[in-house]
Amino acid sequence: MHIPDGFLDSKTAVATGVLAATGLSVALRQARVHLPPRRVPLLGLAAAFVFAAQMINFPVAGGTSGHLVGGVLAAVLLGPSPAVVVVSAVLIVQCLMFADGGLSALGANILNMGVLGAVGGWAIYFAVSRMVKGLFGCVLAAAFAAWCSTVLGSIACAGELAVSGTVGWTVVLPAMAGIHMFIGVGEGFITALVLVAIARARPELLQPQAPVASTRSYGAVLIYGGLIALGLALFASPFASSWPDGLDRTAEALGFREKTANPLLPAPLPDYRMPGMHWSVLSTSLAGGVGTIVVFVLAWLLARVLVPKANRIEEAGPPRSP
């Protein structure tokens, strides 16, 4: 999901850069104010951990392999603001040291995987784990949130590519979201397995997020919420409404590459295309909705299998007592 240099035009790169810089500076401020000094080195170490964990390959069918992305895992273990710093550090090092993800697309990558992926994923995790208590709820919520954050990041990535006029919206969205719906299942599965293994060995490590969560300020929540809403509104809404026309026109007015998007419209079936597109929008949304429900059920089953019943009752105690 790392966008290389050259796929984003200037308006998208600047817009994502501003959003990412705002998110990162809020996260840094939150971490500086609320993170105890004892845990400051953990930020750097956790970033190194995410980088090292990404190099451990999990075998998937047919000789291919996948690896953990780790945004939601970091958010669950460290809290949302430290997770944004950690994911951003990983992305910066990958960009500067490995040329993985472009320099001009750094903002977009931080926005997709740091702000949308980690904070968005953490919000879903927080909501679900509030509803279902104990380790069972924690594992269920983390698996579901990991899937959601992967898909959310890929949709935003597709939106950025489409708004840049690099590739058509109707081509890039199904491709990106479709692939990442499967990748997300793996991500959720690994996240759940790792959390269960950590809970078995050092259950107290799963709790430090509680004080972080309780001391967060409403201003940060507002800014994060605003950033996620703005990011989705800018880069995911063309999918649901007639925005592409408006954006194409802006691009034309500003003199950006319009030639690539134009030939689609004077096609032989100008009237047929819009209903067709609406149909595809509807069916894609429907598929997305059904997929989300299926994944939630899968996460539920996974958490059921991974967390034994005796353990579930035993583990339900500690989070309530402190």
């Binding site: 840094l28 400051v40 930020l43 750097g44 170490l45 970033a47 550090a89 990983v90 090092v93």
Partner: peptide, 9 residues
């Protein structure tokens, strides 16, 4: 904080 994080990383 970001520079510290990057250098530790």
């Amino acid at each position: 904080l970001l520079v510290t994080t990057l250098s530790l990383m």
